[in-house]
């Protein structure tokens, strides 16, 4: 797949449906969706909303009852599922490392199945361990049980990336990791994604994680209803309905501050001619980070792209276009 002609759309779901025998309702109602190449899409919703089922239908671990799945311009609804999965990275919450195999062997499994030679595989293992921040010399020969939860999931990500698949499916990969390590893993993973630019479909029930990681977020409601599929910024400033509003919870306006950048907001805010020392920031920095610096350094004026803006104007310009009567 990686060598097929590049198309704008990486995943195209057409009326994909799942119904289990002897059940009255669809586990996943007919769903259509398009995910672009290099996009980081997060499926989020309460438990039982069908988001994991949806994810597992993309690599056909769960076979859809109806509908079509297109990946990289190819209809894969009826191709050999094993062959399909070898070209899609898959990361799950419980990691699922083979406990009887060393870290290196775990990572080499897919390259082995694809017939890579030993030298190429070994080189790839070291490259991937470096990529996920584990020193190859130290970790290559270790067994999963000798690793911490965070280290195990790093290996899990390396294993999914082994054959350089264009697409990664991740099912709550950081859900079982303690909050501090999770935060670090998320940051590292975002930095990693900057470099490798995979198409990622990521499932979580944590809206904060979704807002932090996703280019676009699909919010599912109970009964697998797709309530909204949009950028974090749009979701925070224009929630589609009451479900989305209650799901993103309180302080949507505050959360918005970490989603919008000072560059765009400063463009909307009035310039000030008040004298005083300004804090300068890069246009692509999120408003929340810049505000934090202003508060700690006690500056009331921000300078970005040659324009001077007052803190209060920056704040209201950030959240000013919200349409949320509640």
């Amino acid at each position: 797949m990686s060598d097929s002609v590049a198309t704008e759309s990486m995943i195209r779901l057409v009326e994909v449906t799942k119904r289990y025998p002897n059940t009255p309702a669809d586990a996943v109602r007919p769903l259509s969706m398009e995910i672009r190449r290099g996009e980081f899409v997060v499926f989020v919703g309460p438990s039982g909303c069908g988001k994991t089922t949806m994810l597992r239908m993309i690599n056909r671990l769960i076979e859809p009852t109806a509908g079509q799945i297109w990946i990289d311009g190819r209809d894969v609804t009826h191709t050999d599922p094993d062959e399909l999965r070898r070209h899609i990275g898959y990361v799950i919450q419980q990691v699922g490392l083979m406990p009887h195999m060393s870290v290196a062997r775990n990572i080499s499994l897919v390259p082995e199945m694809l017939g890579w030679d030993k030298r190429r595989t070994a080189a790839r293992v070291d490259e991937l361990l470096d990529l996920v921040g584990l020193e190859p010399g130290t970790f290559r020969a270790r067994y999963p049980k000798q690793l911490s939860g965070g280290q195990q999931q790093r290996v899990g990500v390396a294993r999914a990336l082994a054959a350089d698949p264009p697409l990664m499916l991740m099912d709550e990969p950081f859900g079982a990791i303690d909050p501090i390590a999770r935060d670090r893993l998320q940051d590292e993973f975002l930095a990693l994604q900057e470099r490798i630019r995979k198409t990622i479909v990521f499932v979580t029930h944590d809206i904060d994680e979704a807002l932090k990681l996703g280019d676009r977020i699909a919010i599912f409601a109970e009964g697998s209803r797709l309530a909204q599929f949009d950028t974090p910024r749009e979701i925070l400033s224009r929630p589609a309905d009451d479900f989305v509003r209650s799901f993103i919870g309180e302080r949507a306006a505050i959360r918005l501050l970490s989603v919008v950048t000072v560059g765009e907001v400063a463009g909307r805010a009035p310039a000030t001619d008040r004298p005083g020392e300004a804090l300068s920031a890069q246009p692509e920095e999120p408003v929340s980070a810049v505000l934090d610096r202003m508060l700690t350094q006690n500056r009331q004026i921000l300078e970005v792209g040659g324009k001077r803006v007052l803190a209060q104007d920056l704040l209201f310009a950030s959240t000013g276009d919200r349409q949320d009567p509640a």
Binding site: Q94, G96, M98, L109, A160
Partner: peptide
Amino acid sequence: VDPSVIDAARGMGMSATRRLFLVRLPL
């Protein structure tokens, strides 16, 4: 055998035979 290990093995595209001899029996 831990179901998540089987799930991971399926997810990476291991055939049923390969899963049996490489994963389930050794474990």
